[in-house]
């Protein structure tokens, strides 16, 4: 019966056939209410869907168009230039070094976050006194707006009055101010990239830990006990039982962090603005410099679209992950 009415709802002629067969009352009642519910439901959905289509969907298509035009801030009439902007980007050395920095930054930071996050999660999983307070303090880097904390780091990395240097110098790990042994964190290419990565890790390692904890608490203790009874040692339990069970949640957490890291410009913009000499320039800051600062909307859109192939695999994987799970 349920099958019949479901089919009837989809197919008018099938419904008629049912009516002819004598099951008139149920399908027709069901259909009327269903239609009303659909109208009601879709009109509830409409505002959100329209907003997202108009301000995410359309702009995305618009950025494809911009990237193939010579649009600029001053000149509203754009000419179609094909793939010229992409070609120009691929031929500039600034683009290639930003791409390299973006990849080093994202992958390097991800590894550090995974290591710090895992160890922290296992510590925080233990029962102990004062856990709530300590957890609340440790997640501060993630919850404080990044533009705000980046300013604090800028002051901590000051070329002369850096508190980090003060401490290291007192411990005799570095030389005195003015000597070659005094690191200028944001002024030397290698150190500058390391410093901005460090700030990104600082901001996100609590997030990694909390996502991991959410995963670990979702593993029922009986499962682990069962594995213990079967003689699995800690590493075996971790690799064969815990990791597969929390894999989906780790995956989603990792994906979010990657997207945030790939698209975050504030740390680099505020700390080094891409310097010294392009050593910390990443695709987001380059796109901002070219697209907004220099006003070449088309060029800028093309550069930021190069991030899309980096993000797309992550998004497809997430989509498949979401679809696979039953709601």
């Amino acid at each position: 019966m349920a099958q019949l009415s479901a089919r009837g709802e989809r197919d008018r002629s099938a419904a008629l056939a049912i009516e002819v067969a004598g099951h008139v009352a149920a399908p027709r009642w069901w259909r009327r209410v269903a239609v009303r519910r659909y109208v009601f439901g879709y009109s509830l959905l409409a505002p959100a869907v329209l907003f997202v289509l108009l301000l995410v969907g359309l702009p995305f298509l618009f950025s494809l168009y911009l990237a193939m035009s010579d649009a600029s801030v001053g000149d509203p009439v754009a000419r179609f230039v094909g793939l010229e902007n992409f070609r120009a980007a691929l031929e500039s050395s600034a683009f290639w070094s930003s791409l390299r920095n973006t990849l080093v930054f994202t992958v390097g930071a991800a590894i550090c976050k995974a290591l710090l996050g895992t160890t922290l999660a296992f510590l925080l999983m233990q029962p102990f006194r004062g856990k709530k307070v300590i957890r609340a303090l440790i997640v501060m880097p993630f919850t404080i707006p990044i533009a705000v904390s980046a300013l604090g780091w800028k002051w901590m990395f000051d070329s002369q009055f850096s508190v980090i240097n003060w401490a290291l110098s007192r411990l005799h790990l570095i030389g005195d101010f003015g000597t070659a042994g005094w690191p200028v964190w944001l002024g030397e290419p290698g150190l500058a990239l390391g410093s901005v990565m460090f700030v990104n890790v600082w901001r996100s390692f609590p997030f990694s830990a909390i996502v991991l904890m959410a995963g670990l608490t979702s593993v029922p203790p009986e499962v682990i006990d069962a594995a213990k009874v079967d003689g699995a040692n800690f590493l075996q339990r971790f690799r064969k039982v815990i990791v597969p069970m929390i894999a989906p949640i780790l995956f989603v957490g990792g994906l979010f962090d990657t997207v945030f890291t790939l698209s975050d410009l504030s740390i680099v913009y505020l700390l080094t603005n891409g310097g010294p000499d392009g050593a910390t320039e990443i695709l987001p800051t380059l796109a901002y410099q070219v697209g907004i600062k220099a006003g070449a909307l088309g060029r800028g859109a093309a550069i930021s679209l190069f991030l899309f192939p980096l993000l797309l695999p992550a998004m497809i994987l997430l989509l498949r992950n979401l679809r696979r799970r039953e709601w």
Partner: peptide, 23 residues
């Protein structure tokens, strides 16, 4: 539709800020 709406959360501002500047 639900997944579609959620996925737009993952379209980063860095791709949208230039076209949105025009908007």
């Amino acid at each position: 539709l639900g997944i579609g709406i959620f996925m737009t959360y993952l379209v980063p501002s860095i791709i949208l800020f230039i076209p949105l500047a025009r908007v």
